[in-house]
Design a protein around this nucleic acid. Structure first.
Lengths: 190, 190, 190, 190
DNA sequence: CATGAATGAGAGTTCATTCAT
DNA sequence: GATGAATGAACTCTCATTCAT
């Protein structure tokens, strides 16, 4: 049942955006009454937290294949590619995870936060592995990881929040792809 | 008076976030009636546009000194430094300009959009100047500019929207500084 | 419940006039919250449409007995008598149907408009039947019907909108009755 | 100055209809501040009363030429023709005088009411004159006058409040003209 | 387990009106 | 005489939430 609710909510996020999601809409989507939602979630916030966890899980699943790549550098690249891919393909989920301001208040104790931490740790470890295998001369794994993350997040979030209007719409994805290639090149000089 | 309203609105943005800003709140903040706001702004949208213009102007002013640096590479660096500095110092304004979702509908014909375009153009021209003076081997000014922008925006927006919780609070700014140094280094290899 | 709302709304129309009717007033009248109204009617317009339909149905019901009179001339007279009677007895409904300005915008596609058309057609057909049976020499059924309607509507609407103040209040109905007799006489000369 | 205000208000009535008239609009139209209106009229009601008087005067002026026709029957006809003409040409003023519900509360003591009475008396006297000169066999001047008035008012008010939708728009005036001819004929049988 | 029915609080907005200047 | 500035009260409408059944 919670699944049903979450799926409906996510679908609404996807199709109508953040503003289009409210208790009534969700209830209608699953053809239950609004009151029913409160049997499964204490309030709107709790539902949104669950949604964020949902998004975190979806993201982890999306990244999973990258984690199994053997060579750390290839893994790093695949990881980045998939991260960006996730953002472009699921802007609503990405938004929820990395941009939305609303229901972050209590997020720290949430499982979804744990998931995020784990992924981030894995990412830093991959960078460290690259360092260990001399892909980078620099030894500051944390900063490298952070730098790469910033670039990726910048790309996705500028796209999602529609701040790329100065670029023709049909060239935005291509530009992002080129930029991704570029940052890899740049990283190799580290 | 418009100043008063805008300042109050910006302050509300800063403290309560987008959702916390509404006509009545703003009115209360300046200790006027809600109706009064409508004497100075046609409606909520118009007030928001003014707010966005405000932010755009503030950003331009903040970047201005960088524009006068002679050497293009130094100019680029100073530009970036000031861009990030603006974001960290005025998270509410930056948020409004580059993250907030709401009132972008008609923004394209607004002066504030023109301001943004101008700045972005100037940024790309600076990159081009660097290329012309052989600071970069790569000749793809657009992609270089975009890449640097993504990185900077990523840093600022992760910070503003509080997605840096995995880093101790007192180390976030330092990390950003290190990352900025790093991206410069990386760029020099281009 | 819809009944409750409509009755309250009609009563308000009756006592306070069009301007006095608003969602809050209606809600107060039935001792419910304003929000409740929106459970039964999408918005103010929809409620008004329902009100107009209500009025149209009531009028049709009021006229119904006249429609079964065999002789066309007697039918015509009974029709007129009942039309006027309806107006005097249910000024609020009549007002809504034939005087109120407000929510006519979309009325044409409404069932209530269809009802009105049907009644009007029936009326013209009755006039035509009178012509066919030589009650009138004139053969212009449309104009005859329209003329009689104008007179009846004039009587009712002058009464409803209180423009008969020059006649003592207790004589108004009698005057109307006499005028009705007179117009019949006049019609017989046609 | 009162002239200026009234003219502006009337013009607004004419162009935007009842709903389009409010203190701000009037003030803007005469390029004065809203507060200024209150120097000349205590409140909105008082201004509306003045407006009604204005309308009454305009109507009297419109009818004036008819009053000078010698033959009472011709006078009666001309009177009717001009009455209807006034309604069709100045729907807003007619509306104000004979349909609008709003500010009638205190109307009885108003001069505009006196004007109306005078006109109505004159009308009845004309009918009486027709009776005296054997144009009618009936001797009930009051009922005859009332009956004719009802017809005329019915025509105008059905037109003004757009209840003639069942007749093609371009035929409405013609139908009214035919009906006017018809009522005259009918009256002659009295 | 599910909901129909209801609502309080609050959103944006408009308007007649006031009053110090 | 005129007004800029201000407002209280009103409007329509939405939403998260509750609770008896």
């Amino acid at each position: 049942m919670r699944r049903l609710i979450l799926d409906a909510a996510l679908h609404l996020f996807r199709t109508k955006g953040y503003e289009g999601v409210n208790m009534r809409n969700i209830a209608e989507a699953i053809e239950y009454s609004a009151a029913t939602l409160y049997l499964y979630y204490k309030d709107k916030n709790e539902l949104y937290f669950a949604l964020q966890f949902e998004a975190a899980a979806a993201k982890r699943d999306h990244l999973l294949p990258a984690m199994e790549v053997q060579d750390p550098m290839e893994r790093l690249i695949e990881f980045g590619r998939r991260y960006i891919d996730f953002g472009f393909k699921h802007p609503d989920l990405y938004d929820l995870l990395f941009i939305t301001k609303a229901p972050m208040e209590h997020i720290e104790n949430q499982e979804c936060w744990a998931l995020g931490i784990a992924t981030h740790t894995f990412f830093e470890e991959t960078v460290q592995a690259c360092i260990d295998q001399r892909y980078f001369k620099s030894t500051d794994a944390a900063t490298i990881a952070y730098t790469l993350w910033c670039h990726a997040h910048g790309m996705v979030s500028l796209f999602i929040r529609e701040r790329m209007r100065m670029y023709p719409e049909d060239q935005r994805q291509a530009l992002a792809a080129k930029s991704f290639e570029m940052i890899i090149k740049m990283a190799e000089s580290l």
